[in-house]
Every structure is written in C-alpha cells, then in structure tokens.
Amino acid sequence: MTGFTRALRGEAYLLTRRRGYRWALAAVFLTALLHALGSWILLEMNHRAGGPGPGESGDWNFWPRFASSARAGMFLVELFLVALVAAAFPRETGTGSVRDPLVRGISRDALVSARAVTALTLPLILGGAAIGAAALGASLCFEAGDVMEEGFAVFGEAEVRTEVMRALGHGFPALLALGALAVLVSAWLARGAVAVAMGIAVVLLPGILPGGLSSWAPWMFTSTLPGLGKESYLGKAAEFAAGYADALPWSFESVVTAGWIAPWPALLLFLAAAILVFRKRDL
C-alpha cells in the first residue's frame, strides 16, 4: 500500500471519528430542516392573519422553500468547511499529531493530497446533507406543483425544477474550490484562527471589491458559492421559484457561466500551492 493510500485511509478514519465533522453534519442537517419547518410556521401564521394560503402564493410551493432551505444549509456548509479544514493542520502542528504520519512512510505531499481529498469530499457530504434535509423539510410542509400567484400559474413546475436543480449543481464547483482554499491556508499558516480568518476573508472579498473591480467578481469563485456567494445561483433560483420572474434575467447567464468555469483553475492552483508550502513548513 502506498503512502498516499495509507494517508487516505487515515483521513477516512478521521472523517468518521472526529466529533467536529459529526457536529457539522448534524448542524447542517438540522439547519436546513428547521429552516423549511420555520418557513411553514411563518407562512401559516401569515395565512391565519389573512395572508395568502396554499395554492394562492408561490411562497407556499415546495420548490422555493426547498431551494431557500438548501441555501440556508449551504451557509453552514461553507463556514464549517473553512473552519474544519483550515484549522486542521495548524491544530495538528500545535499538538504534534501531524508528525506521526510523517515518520510512518507518508510523505508531506501524500499527507496534503489526502487532506485535499477530505476537503473535496466534505462539501459533497455536508452539501448532500443540506439538500437532503431541505428536501425532507420542504416535502413535509409544502406541495410541489406549478408556481401559483393569486390563483394563476406563473411558472410551470418543470421550469422551476430545472432552474433549482441546475442551481444546486452549480454551487458545487465553488464549494470544491473553497475546500481547496481551506487546505492551502491550513498548510500555509501556523495559527488556526488566522487560517480560518483568511479563508473567510477570501469568501467575503467579492462583496467588498471597489466599483471598478466588481465586474470581475463573478470570476472569483467565491461569488458563486451557493450560501455566502454574492451571486449565488441558488439564491436567485429560490426567488425565481417563488414567482419573481426578474430574479433570473438573461444577463445572469454570464455569471452562471463564470461559476461553472472559474472554480476549477482556482482549485488546481490552491492544491498545488498547498503541496508546495507544506514542503517547507516546520513541523
């Protein structure tokens, strides 16, 4: 068995045993589930106060509720991804636990690569939990179907479903790149808090770019993150599914394209940089 394979098996062991990962999974699941249930409670209260009821407003449709609950879960996925992965190597260096694999026939490159696999798997697991919990919560409380407004169908269900499902898939390249970024700051910075802060700062950067640079924001992968992204397709799709036709203008298609493309070179760059900086790190 190669050093990388053993490192990978070690990461899989950690993924199933570390409390942090389990808590993150539970928190994401509950957040998405409770978001859907909370939405139902608010809509029900509004309905009892004279507001629209089921079938009278797009807000009562399964698809917008599913999309917005999934997005709420994705907020946490992104925060946990940065917090768990970025802080890992600094913490392991502090406790000294990072040294043991390196004297057991695992190279630094293999260890970082295995950690990268974790960082790329984690968003799939947590993101899957967010989507699953959102689907469960929304299906318990809301009916799927055409999006209705004052008794009229605004959008057909197929149209809305397509947008929401596409938006869900669209968020994953950015999530994977975020995982790679977390590996880079983890391999590079000595203090966990600094590494996490750096990761969060990069996530928030597109939102604070000065006017001249803001047109480039969609090409920063963090813009298209499903939760925290300034140009979240999932957020727009949730609005669209609720009956807001102007939520997804034609011009947004260029942002969607950027979101499909931009994360991949960033991901490769971050992983290569992580391997290089970890080679020089004192442990």
Partner: peptide, 17 residues
C-alpha cells in the same frame, strides 16, 4: 518517508489528537 517500516517516534509534545 522512504525509511522502511520500523521507526517508532514519540516526540514532545506527545501528539495525541
């Protein structure tokens, strides 16, 4: 990492996760 198996190390700090 190329050292054949047979190395046991306990450094300071102890390195418990």
């Amino acid at each position: 990492h190329e050292v054949p198996h047979g190395l046991g190390v306990a450094l300071d700090p102890p390195g418990m996760d």
